[in-house]
Design a binder for these strands. Structure first.
Lengths: 152, 152
DNA sequence: TATTGTTATACTCTATAACTATA
DNA sequence: TATAGTTATAGAGTATAACAATA
């Protein structure tokens, strides 16, 4: 186990990430909010999937996921197809327009990252990706009984 | 410059951080929201400082900072002292109660991190801290039209 | 005139709970 | 009864703009 000071530093750095994400989101197309982009990216990567599975992958409540998807469906970027195995469920799929939007948004994000991280090596970027992936896994796959100790 | 695929992966991992932060914030005392904790931590680390400097360090707008500080001042965790050099300005300082609150909150956060990251080495945590610090710097110190950091 | 900090307003993202329609 | 998804409502966090006091 690391020292309290080190954990405090980590917590502090994590707190600062949203500001980075906000700056990054300035390069998103104006009609596609960052949260919607996240949905498009996950659906693109995983292919056809259900609402509940999408919510799980995004790690947000299904009610929120539902609203994001409705927003995307209104704009014709995502289709909600009936699930032949369960009529309560809907299968999500990117439309060609959705793929175009995702590609355009990713171009913007990539350009911004390439600009800001211009003196980072591929190795640096990769290492950060790996650590963030490990962090995410540690907090989601891990002890999921939900009711953590509220220490104070 | 890294590949578009690698940057896309990084963007995706960054998107997932708020979920980690939310889980982490469950270990905060219920009357101290995470954003307030961030303010306490910065003031504690930097000592007496002005609103504008605090906003800069938090990388959020001063109007938002003002509200957080007002919230903390109402609870007696922070003092807003008159600045002898500029009567428009106010100097912020943690009260003993604020220090207690910060310590208690950090204990909770530390416990949660120690639990979730129980199989991480100190080296892993340190490496993640360093990369996040570099990332933050790249997005704030970097190409910034107006952040001239007048330290005082 | 410019700057420091506050307040009013609005926007984004999220969670909880109540609801529907199937299973 | 239980589950998939939707909608209503509320809360946390942020930004922009208008403002008061001071420089």
């Amino acid at each position: 186990m690391a020292s309290q000071e080190l954990y405090g530093e980590l917590a502090s750095q994590l707190r600062a990430i949203p500001a980075v994400a906000r700056e990054l989101s300035r390069s998103c197309p104006p009609n596609c909010p960052p949260a919607s982009l996240g949905v498009l990216a996950v659906v693109s990567r995983h292919g056809e999937l259900r609402m509940s599975r999408l919510a799980e992958l995004l790690d947000i409540d299904m009610s929120v996921t539902s609203r994001h998807v409705a927003h995307l469906a209104e704009r014709g970027w995502i289709d909600r197809l009936p699930d032949p195995h369960d009529r309560r469920s809907r299968l999500l799929r990117l439309t060609p327009g959705g793929m175009d939007m995702l590609r355009a948004a990713l171009d913007g994000v990539t350009a911004s990252l390439a600009d800001h991280l211009r003196d980072w090596s591929d190795q640096d970027v990769l290492e950060l990706c790996r650590l963030l992936e490990r962090l995410r896994t540690a907090f989601t796959a891990d002890c999921r009984p939900r009711t953590q100790t509220i220490t104070m």
